[in-house]
């Protein structure tokens, strides 16, 4: 058991690169093998991915209010150049 826990900690440092797809191939194989056997690490990977996803989704729907842009253009003396 103790040995397995160490293995988890060792591999967890790679999950960030794993979700980015930039992990080196050999480590990737090792990690995926571990994930198929270890529920805990699988949950960490899934929820880490989801964390990134929901932040992206949230900000994709955030738009700058148009009065903020109008004031910016005015401040830059560009208000007459909008298309």
């Amino acid at each position: 058991m103790e040995k397995n826990k160490n293995h988890c900690e060792e591999l967890i440092t790679s999950i960030s690169e794993y979700v980015d797809g930039s992990i080196n191939p050999q480590l990737c194989l090792e990690l995926e093998k571990h994930l198929s056997e270890c529920d805990n690490c699988r949950v960490v990977v899934n929820t880490l991915k989801k964390t990134i996803d929901i932040y992206r989704q949230q900000s994709a729907r955030e738009k700058m209010p148009s009065d903020v842009k109008n004031r910016l253009l005015a401040r830059l003396h560009l208000e007459d150049y909008r298309e």
């Binding site: 900690e9 967890i12 440092t13 805990n40 949950v43 899934n46 929820t47």
Partner: peptide, 11 residues
């Protein structure tokens, strides 16, 4: 301190 403690799958 690189450890994950919360193991709930809320996905």
């Amino acid at each position: 301190s690189i450890e994950a403690y919360q193991l709930l799958d809320w996905c």
